[in-house]
Amino acid sequence: MFSGELFFNAIVSGLLIGGFYAAVALGLSITFGCLEIVNIAHPTFVIFGSYVTYILNVNFGLDPILAGLVFVPAFFVLGMFLYRFYYASFERAGQESLNGLAFFFGLMFTVEVLLILVYGVDYRLVSAPYIGQTWHLGYIDFPLRQTVPFVVGTAMTIGVYLFLSKTFLGRAIKAVSQDRLALQLMGADPIRVKQYAMGIAIATAAVAGSLLIILGPVEPSQGRLYIGRVFAMVVLGGMGSVSGTLIAALLIGVIESFVATFYGPSWAPAVSFGLLFITLALRPQGMFGRA
């Protein structure tokens, strides 16, 4: 049974979600792709972003996106501290791979439990005038609770892409683990560069968190579902390539949307994980990455 209406709506909805996925994967694309820091706790920071958005929205009636933006500086500083701690505890001693991974795993778990302790396991949601509205173009629906995250997520991703390729700091971030020599020639201190990079990465989680809670209600353990997704996007996109991550995010959004539409939503989580699994087994350097 094939219906054009279902088909095109699945594509559009997939693309809209994909733009949001890019916002979640963006930070990891920097930490994992550029800094080689395996921050599996990144999605948990996104959830954390959702909760701070929720607090500002419920208590002060602030627009969710504005609330996310308000927390960008705080998340930036948090990210810088996190890198300092990570550097002092693991990277300096060359212990990063095994212990660093376990550290972020512990961090993910602890933040999740803290959120449960404070807010419980109930779903939380925000209110804004556009949530619940839908635009129509022919028979294709554009629900605004998906469209707004798509627009903001894609815009942020393109913004970070431009920042990384056009500015001095951005290029230093891209060079920091790939090309030591270039970094030296630029006269940049790798520790500082990484510190700012991690700051930016975590800062994007504040915005991504506000988008997540616009998209739908949020509860603390949701972050785990995103771990495989975001790693799939970063690895598929070719480690550290922001544009590749965006393409991969849109692709995964569409595939998930198709699976959900034609096979049932309970199979959707397996899509990106399966894709990641296959990619890693067959082609660890990514589908769109350098050979």
Binding site: F273, F277, L280
Partner: peptide, 10 residues
């Protein structure tokens, strides 16, 4: 490590 995370979800 990442692929094992993926495997658990699958």
């Amino acid at each position: 490590a990442i692929s094992t995370l993926a495997m658990a979800i699958v």
